[in-house]
């Protein structure tokens, strides 16, 4: 009895997820420091990797990954909106570059 209830629950959850997938979009934003901007955290990671004996790492640059669940259905409109978000808040364009992936 219990197992039946369980599988029903799983079924309805995945069904709900599929429904959600049809109407929603995901944006994945990668924020990285611009070339020429010193990245002290990247440098520290580089030294730590060296200390662990991983040879052949020339440079480490650290960044941020930001994921957004959007209600948008139109890709172009979503891209415009997310670009505006990046310019206004998510990235500081004085020191950072950003790239946007939509799926």
């Amino acid at each position: 009895m219990v197992s039946v209830l369980k599988s029903e629950a799983i079924y309805s959850y995945s069904f709900y997820q599929r429904l959600k997938k049809d109407t929603k979009m995901k944006a994945r934003i990668t924020v990285t420091l611009k070339t020429g901007v010193l990245d002290p955290q990247g440098k520290a990671i580089e030294h730590a990797l060296e200390g662990l004996g991983f040879a052949g790492v020339d440079e480490v640059r650290q960044g941020k990954l930001i994921e957004l669940d959007l209600n948008d259905t139109d890709k172009d409109a979503a891209m415009t909106r997310v670009t505006e978000m990046c310019e206004k808040l998510l990235a500081n364009t004085v020191i950072e570059n950003y790239s946007i992936e939509l799926e």
């Binding site: 901007v37 010193l38 002290p40 955290q41 500081n92 004085v94 020191i95």
Partner: peptide
């Protein structure tokens, strides 16, 4: 400009 993490972290 911008204020970044200190040089020595």
């Amino acid at each position: 400009g911008a204020l970044m993490r200190n040089r020595d972290i």
